[in-house]
């Protein structure tokens, strides 16, 4: 037992230093996550001290039996009442002032995004200043660096929870309700997020990326996302587009200029996506082909059927066409 406090200390130290990871609350990259992390550190230190105190007090009688009877008042009033009362009277008001960033007000110039949780993927739509649906994406949020971004969180079916640990705490997406949160990335980068409320069979495979880029780059991206896709240039790509139409892909997926459906992820820029199937596999033509042919094998229970009746060249053409959408 005597070794344990030290073990705890080492582990606490480890937890503070081993910050890495694209999805770590210990590696904050935004003001909200940073203030929560600061609060965390204060509490880790406090908790470690209290644990050490309690462990030491509890072991003393075994190391050195006493002759006199104990000072009850010191234990009951000092340890039982004063210790929690004083530490918490200090901590609670501090806690009350932390974390208001995620509910802060924003100005009209700032970016507003509707994020809608589906089983098991994320629909992302940028609001135009008039509130209508602008550029769209899926399973990827592009945000400008250093600016607060306003998110409106919806759920289409069951409860999901939107969480990017490096940027902010999580907020649930609840059917029938719209939750608002404000998010800011202080440095450019890719921050991984994941659904944090159990939402059914493939809850584990429901991730997304927040891609923070400088404002000009963001504006360019948003402009592209709002424009119709170009005409395919090679015969193979044309065949792929025709297959997209004839197979009925457009009944679920939007490709700007080709189809408008929103039952599945918007594919307007699917060729540039970092992942497919909400973080199930990386992007790229190989994975696109694999996903089309065996979506139910890679992520059983998701809404997309496996298109396993395609001939080889057809599969390649469709995958190549989708990969060309950037």
């Amino acid at each position: 037992m005597g070794r344990d406090p030290r073990l705890i200390l080492i582990l606490v130290a480890l937890s503070l230093t081993a910050c890495g990871g694209p999805q770590s609350a210990l590696d904050p990259a935004g003001p909200s996550a940073a203030s929560l992390h600061r609060l965390g550190i204060i509490m880790y230190v406090g908790a470690t001290l209290v644990t050490l105190l309690v462990t030491a007090l509890m072991l003393v009688p075994f190391l050195r039996p006493r002759e006199r009877s104990v000072n009850r008042n010191l234990f009951l009033w000092g340890g039982g009442v004063a210790l929690p009362l004083l530490t918490l009277t200090a901590l609670v008001p501090y806690v009350m002032t932390v974390g208001h960033e995620t509910r802060a007000a924003t100005t009209p110039q700032q970016v507003s995004i509707d994020v809608i949780g589906y089983v098991y993927w994320w629909d992302v739509a940028y609001r135009r200043p008039d509130g209508s649906r602008g550029g769209a994406a899926a399973n990827e949020l592009h945000v400008p660096v250093g600016e607060p971004v306003e998110l409106f969180l919806h759920a289409a079916d069951v409860i999901h929870s939107f969480w990017v640990p490096s940027l902010a705490g999580k907020t649930d997406m609840i059917p029938g309700r719209v939750n608002r949160m404000v998010l800011q990335a202080d440095r450019p980068g890719v921050y991984r997020g994941q659904c944090a409320e159990y939402c059914g069979l493939q809850h584990a495979l429901m991730a997304f990326d927040v891609i923070a880029v400088p404002r000009p780059e963001f504006d360019a991206w948003l402009a592209r996302a709002s424009q119709p896709t170009g005409q395919p240039e090679t015969p193979e790509l044309r065949q792929g587009r025709d297959l997209f139409v004839s197979l009925g892909c457009g009944a679920c997926h939007a490709v700007r200029g080709l189809s408008e459906a929103r039952l599945g992820p918007d594919l307007t820029q699917v060729g540039s996506r970092r992942t497919l199937g909400a973080g199930t596999v990386p992007g790229g033509v190989g994975n696109i082909a694999g996903w089309i042919a065996s979506a139910q094998h890679l992520k059983p229970g998701n809404a997309m059927p496996s298109y396993d009746q395609l001939e080889g060249p057809q599969l390649r053409a469709l995958a190549a066409y989708l990969e060309s959408l950037k």
Partner: peptide, 16 residues
Amino acid sequence: LTGVMVAAVPYDWQVH
């Protein structure tokens, strides 16, 4: 003690 932590609303947004 971790209970005190998760009782703190903003901290819980991370660990919930």
